[in-house]
Amino acid sequence: MDLDFLRPVSEDLLGEITSFDKQSLGNIIKVHSSESGIPDLEDVQIAIIGVKENRRSAGVDEFLHFHNIRSSFYRLFPGNWHIKIADLGDIEKGAEVEDTYFALQTILTQLIKKGIIPVILGGSQDLIYAQYRAFDNLDQMVNLVNIDSKFDLGDADHPISSESYVGKIVVNKPYNLFNYSSVGYQTYFNSQNEIELMERLFFDAYRLGEVTSNISNIEPIMRDANLVGMDLGAINATVLGGGYYNNSPNGFDGKEICALARYAGISDKVSSFGIYEYSVDYKSIGNMLVAQILWYFIEGVNYRTNENTVSAKNEFVKYQVPIDDDVLVFFKSPLSGRWWIEIPFPVNVNTKLKRHTLLPCSEGDYLEACNQIIPERWYKAKRKNEI
């Protein structure tokens, strides 16, 4: 693997690790150091990467670094995990922002092809564009889930920024995006034009109150995601202890944001996870929360059931529900108790879409179908397959 873009973790931080408990994460994970170089990745399942790029964010830290996050994370103890973790260090700012995108995309593509899940620490959220472009050569359609108070669609005719990268994902070739889901949006931060555009594109949007009233409803959304991005601005600013340029009194609390991270980790499909809009001005409580978000994502990965396989699906229990002129076909896993619904697609459809024939759903979707209510996500996915 060509990982020349990466710079090692600082010597100061490595010195700190020596004072941590021997069973802490800092003394267990493999770390890229100037002395030992990039660690052997043969048995690694998760790789942490910092990206010091924030030139297209409204909140720019001139000297962005991730020392405090790493220090907080390294102090934590692992759960009863069987996976191996590596910290590959940082990608420095390129001469141009596009150079940083290229470096990140190149590294992520290599890691994903090797079956390693990259966890990105950013940096401005427009880095999701590079995170998404890492799938360009993987011959599949992509589902993107964004935990954010804003849609970040922006104007595709304007230069990319931390609030307009989704528009570029939609219009720029190659067209790999199948679905975009915004989790935790707050209406007053989004124009009506963007809200209407989300509907016209059959994208999914879940308001903050809708999510927090029953956060388990987001599990099927995460289960269908290939990559997940998280804007730390979606978190209540008081929970982070200040330091964020867009201080908002509303947002997810610590327990809720960690639950979403765990849902992302436990999804068999999620193959990259990014945490963006970090500020070096966070107090210790904010750094510890970001460290715990990392911890819960890894905890989720550890408990994956690998139900995203043909052999696993052969064991599912099948249910058929007639509604009007359609027959909705549901499947339930006897192993995990999770539900899926079948999405019909026309003959001669793009072969990339065949992987979307089973759409994750909840038992509530099945019960509503029994009451002759068609699940909205099923309708949207069906329409996208027909376009």
Rank of each mutant, 00 (worst) to 15 (best):
H67E: 15
R70T: 06
L144F: 14
G229H: 01
V60M: 12
R200P: 00
V170N: 03
K313N: 08
R262L: 15
N314Q: 14
N80E: 13
K173R: 12
L201W: 01
G254N: 06
G243E: 04
D4H: 12
G243D: 03
V142R: 03
F102M: 07
F77D: 07
S19H: 12
E42R: 14
L127S: 05
L6F: 10
K168M: 03
G209K: 04
P360L: 10
G265S: 07
E96Q: 09
N306T: 05
I116V: 11
S362K: 05
I120C: 09
R223G: 03
I160C: 02
S213I: 01
P334A: 05
D326V: 01
D325R: 08
D40L: 08
N217L: 08
K380A: 10
I117M: 15
S216K: 15
K168I: 00
N176P: 00
I235S: 01
A103K: 15
S216C: 03
I147C: 04
S161K: 03
D40F: 05
F5S: 14
Q110N: 10
S10Y: 08
R200S: 12
Y263M: 14
P322D: 08
F252N: 08
K52W: 02
Y366R: 04
V166I: 13
K332D: 05
M288L: 13
L153R: 00
L41R: 04
N247M: 13
T351K: 12
S71V: 01
D99G: 04
P8S: 06
D99S: 12
D87L: 09
K113Y: 02
Y245E: 08
G286V: 06
N350W: 00
L359F: 06
E35G: 01
K114E: 11
G123K: 13
T305Y: 14
S149P: 04
L121C: 09
F135C: 10
K30S: 14
S213C: 07
D87F: 08
F345T: 02
D324F: 10
F102Y: 12
E315Q: 15
I17V: 14
P174Q: 03
I215Y: 02
R355Q: 12
L144D: 06
R262N: 15
Q23R: 13
R223E: 09
Q320D: 14
L3Q: 09
E42I: 06
Y319R: 08
K269S: 13
L153D: 00
V60P: 00
V321L: 01
K30A: 11
E219F: 06
P174S: 01
S333G: 10
F135N: 13
L25C: 07
K150L: 01
Y366S: 05
E376Y: 07
G123P: 11
W340T: 09
L359G: 04
K93A: 14
